[in-house]
Amino acid sequence: MKVNKITTGHKIGDKEVFAVELVNDKGTLVSIFNYGTIINKFVVTNKAGVQQDIVLGFDNFSSYVDKEYLKNYPYLGAVIGRYANRIRKGEFVVDGADYQLAKNNGEDCLHGGLEGFDKKVWDITSTSEAPHASVTFQHFSLDGEENFPGDLAVQLKFELTNNDELILSYQADTDEATPINLTHHSYFNLSTTGDKIGKHIHQMNASSYLEQDENFVVTGNLLPVKDSIHDFTVARTIEENWDKVAGYDQSYVLDKTYGELTLASKTTETNSGLSLLVYSTEPVAHFYTAKHLSVKNGKNGKEYGEFDAFCVETQHHPNAVNIPHFPNTVLEPEEVYTQTTIYKVIAN
């Protein structure tokens, strides 16, 4: 096990941006920037014994803060907070007080607002090479940041095991009641040649999904996947039943006991022999097939477009802060927020 801390040569404000490499005994490598805790590389060995990088991103850090990239910003590989997905009209009420967030996605607030956790330089609080290669990042989100209430302290630990498991452990506490819904937004492609992901085989352990309005805001209604294009309870190719124009951009309610660490999804690419298994304590997995992705000069100069990747974003129910019958997403001062998500890669 190895941990390497590498300077990028960039500063944002008065904070230096580093890449932290986690390497296991098999040679699997994960590289994470402390800016947005962006997973920049996830290099694994496929069934042919060849190493390949399974996440989209850039060769250089500077591209992540490039103005052209940010114009059609897809949150490549970044943490999302304080609140993942969309909050209807950017509005919520906590303890009788009304809050108005930025409307950065039509009339709604997306992924925490104009400058969410994805655009913060996190502090590196610790690294370790035993029992796993690991790094812990921390961000203090002050009261009023993006107009959320309360000082929120967030820790995010990444651990890489010898079983090719990347474990993400989140923890947060607050001094004032505040909504919180964290996730990570890595874009995966398991193909050796970076082909479109339509022929990836996908299974999602969810018998229901969340109804969305025309701007993808969750309404509060639960719908069965049976007899719909959203049924991935049995493994099938992503493109088998999808809308050829829109693909998938949908929140699935996982079949599980609330809070237990269980398998959310499994995605396989036959040529590489790679499978990505996603485990989570969270009740929802948002499945996105990158319809709106438009990135120039990605890794090795590649352009990324629609359906070039998939995301499995584990989280609580989107917009739950406005839907009382959904699981609670308001963290109280006496509580501790925790979440665990595991990306496990196998080759066969």
Rank of each mutant, 00 (worst) to 15 (best):
S265V: 07
T219H: 02
E176V: 10
H184E: 13
V278R: 05
A206I: 00
N181T: 03
S208N: 06
T267H: 03
Y248S: 14
L210Q: 05
H185G: 12
Y170C: 13
T237G: 15
A206V: 02
L182R: 10
G194H: 02
Y288V: 12
Y252E: 10
L222C: 08
D255Y: 02
L276C: 04
V253M: 14
A285T: 13
I167A: 09
T270S: 15
G150T: 05
Y248I: 06
D249G: 10
D227L: 05
M204S: 15
E211W: 00
T174L: 04
T219S: 11
E269S: 03
G194A: 03
D231R: 07
D175V: 08
S207Y: 01
S207C: 00
V284L: 07
T192R: 11
Y248C: 13
N215E: 12
S169E: 11
E239G: 14
A235Q: 15
L190P: 14
H200P: 12
D175C: 11
D195R: 05
V154S: 03
T237S: 15
I238R: 08
K196Y: 02
A235D: 07
G220W: 01
T183D: 06
N189V: 07
N163F: 06
T281P: 03
G273T: 05
D164Y: 01
F148V: 10
